[in-house]
Design a binder for these strands. Structure first.
Lengths: 229, 229
DNA sequence: ATTTATATAGACTGACGGTCGGTCTGATGC
DNA sequence: GCATCAGACCGACCGTCAGTCTATATAAAT
């Protein structure tokens, strides 16, 4: 094979790109290192020059993804001028906008990440994201606690719990997706809407807020997410 | 090798036993099928006579474990004579008793299950357990909602969320264990106690109960769990 | 120009999950 | 007592895959 040399950063990013594309279509386990290097047009030696193992590549990828994700929602995290409730709602609104905009992609992502054979992929990404988001979320909660606008005596703990709760919504989104794909779109929409409602209620209660304070979803969100092309 | 024949149920249970022991000491990925059959004194053929794959064995094991676990806490689930709050507290008390009794074993289990290389093992077991426990928990919540003693408009959703929350405690227990093993026992005890407190608060709030109604831990629980031999 | 460090190639290895052809045993029917 | 059969059990073998190793091309440094 011809020997092509590229700046190291370009190469490793190319590898990450290919890996990401493959992981998110075929899944982590069933994507082989050979698949990745074939796709990237690179030799085994080059691959292992950049990453000590397939796992390490996954780790790097997870970090990259969570960094990218953070960049998108960062604005809502560091705006201490508005109060904590406002920041939380801005956060929800922002991620909602993102979700609807990228719905088709995101649906696919969800479908992949929640497949049982992709637990490893899911877990790594979620862990990286949690590591990045938890302290920021805790910060907002701390601000709110100081302001007296919400009640999170142990911000770190509450932050982790909120993130954990989010997973249950993820699970249900996945379930709804399957149901929608099976044809029962209305049933799926109703289910997801109900859950988002319950999710919002749970969050309000955890932070001792009047019900309806945190807006995690808006009417029509479920349908928009499940059906938009 | 000498050919020894045993009733199918005995054999498959032996295989499950060995697999369980190995998975919980070395981890899932790093236990090979050859390890299992060596330990069980059985041939490859026999193994694949009973289980179509290593994964299928894990699945069966997860189901077995969740069934066993359920048997231990079953009594607290089906006693509709007392009210829902009482049942929930009985459930917590029961699982607490179990935790302290089996602390050393359980510590080991936690340490294994939360290792990043054991996500698959963890996920399968947790999923099987959730599938079994969620409906029962939802039942209690429904009863409580009907009684008016707690507020869980969507029992299924709340049940899943409670189970999800439980995981955050699991994560922290693991963290505390590591800290304790590193020598900082007092720090670990304090951390875990704080989290259990916060956990209890979160549960109370989610179900709209006065703070302190649900007793997820008692003073000294963290120390007992972390230090008992 | 020569050395050194870095980047790339790709054949090769070892381990592992899984398969396959076959054997052994005990039960059933005659 | 013998033939037949199912299914428990054996273990050599296979294909795949992550990871290693040696060789070499290229750029940078001396």
């Amino acid at each position: 094979m011809v020997r092509i040399k590229k700046p190291p950063e370009v190469r490793s990013n190319e590898l990450l790109d290919c890996a990401q594309r493959l992981f998110f279509t075929r899944g982590y386990e069933s994507t082989t290192v050979n698949d990745i290097i074939r796709e990237a047009g690179v030799s085994k030696g080059a691959f292992y020059h950049y990453f000590p193992s397939k796992e390490a590549l996954l780790e790097t990828l997870a970090v990259r993804l969570s960094r990218e994700n953070l960049k998108q929602i960062q604005p809502h995290f560091d705006n201490p001028s508005i109060n904590a409730i406002g920041r939380l709602n801005a956060l929800f609104a922002g991620s909602r906008r993102l979700k609807v905009e990228l719905a088709p992609q995101l649906r696919n992502t969800f479908n992949v990440l929640f497949k049982p054979e992709n637990v490893v992929l899911f877990h790594r990404i979620n862990e990286a994201l949690t590591a990045v988001v938890q302290p920021l979320l805790a910060n907002i909660l701390k601000q709110g606690h100081a302001e007296g606008s919400l009640d999170a005596s142990d911000p770190q703990a509450f932050a982790l719990m909120l993130l954990e709760l989010r997973l249950s919504v993820g699970k249900v989104m996945h379930q709804a997706l399957k149901q929608a794909e099976a044809g029962d779109i209305d049933g799926a929409v109703t289910m997801l809407d109900d859950w988002m409602l319950t999710y919002g209620i749970a969050l309000d209660r955890i932070l001792k807020l009047p019900e309806g304070t945190l807006q995690v979803a808006e009417p029509g969100f479920a349908r928009a997410f499940l059906t938009s092309e």
